[in-house]
């Protein structure tokens, strides 16, 4: 499906995280090689979102380690911003900066974090917007964009930093159904172009057609993982089966060729 080579870009090792007395993550681990797309599925509350945020240290794990390209991702002040530049993140609620236009949203990190020159930053930002199909809406404010458009801009914003890996936290869950298509299309193209991606989603059609591996997470750890054909059609674990049957009732997408 995707051309991969076997260098692990991202290694997530044994992550534990508790909030007060509640333990959300219980030793979750996985690896992503270059060019791979891994999709994480599971019931809400399983800790999927928290796990993603641990990767770029927006949430600091209690225990466990993260490695990006062999280098350990540490929370130290001086290092973490460098790592975050190489890890792109797309949020469920997009979190576009409301006070600036779409173009400026993509540009701002290039200017302030990468310290590019104005003209270079603008050129790069326009390129990335074109890549997600939003170049003609560059001068609109987030409030003037539809949900799908806003999410595409937020993908462009993350891509502009030339990350080594892209993390997607339920990117289409906050969108009206007819708007999810445009975002999934962008993500599909990214995968085809060879971007290394970790996607948390309920979109099973997307997962079955794009993922190299699907990981099922429940109660803070991965219960089962494997290629999409195995997970969706021959799941080994009982709880995986239960979750999938509930989801396919809602989405009816497992038989579609996404």
């Amino acid at each position: 499906m995707n051309t991969t080579d076997n260098t692990p870009i991202l290694v997530v090792e044994n992550i534990y995280k508790s909030y007060g007395k509640v333990e959300i993550l219980k030793g979750a681990s996985f690896t992503v090689n270059k060019g791979e797309t891994k999709v994480i599925i599971g019931p809400s509350g399983a800790g999927k979102s928290t796990l993603l945020k641990c990767i770029n240290q927006l949430v600091i794990p209690d225990r466990g380690r993260i490695f990006l390209n062999g280098e350990e991702v540490l929370h130290s002040h001086s290092q973490i911003n460098r790592f975050r530049q190489k890890i792109g993140m797309v949020f469920q609620n997009f979190y576009l900066f409301d006070h600036i236009t779409a173009l400026e949203n993509v540009e701002i990190a290039l200017l302030k974090v990468k310290k590019m020159k104005r003209s270079e930053a603008r050129k790069k930002a326009l390129e990335e917007l074109a890549r997600v199909g939003m170049e003609d809406k560059a001068h609109l404010y987030p409030a003037e964009l539809s949900g799908g458009q806003a999410q595409r801009v937020s993908i462009a914003r993350a891509l502009a930093m030339d990350p080594e890996v892209m993390l997607f936290d339920e990117p289409t869950s906050a969108l009206d159904p007819e708007l999810t298509g445009e975002v999934l299309e962008v993500m599909r193209n990214l995968a085809k172009e060879g971007m290394t991606m970790v996607v948390v989603t309920h979109e099973m059609g997307f997962a079955s057609s794009v993922a190299d591996e699907v990981l099922f997470m429940e109660e803070g750890n991965f219960l089962e993982s494997g290629p999409p054909s195995q997970i969706f059609f021959h799941p080994r674990e009982e709880r995986t089966k239960k979750f999938l049957s509930r989801i396919s009732e809602l989405y009816g997408e497992l038989n579609k060729n996404g």
């Binding site: 927006l58 530049q85 993140m89 949020f91 990190a109 974090v113």
Partner: peptide, 10 residues
């Protein structure tokens, strides 16, 4: 807003 800003490396 703060999360997104941090996530692009600010």
């Amino acid at each position: 807003q703060m999360l997104a800003a941090l996530s692009v490396g600010m």
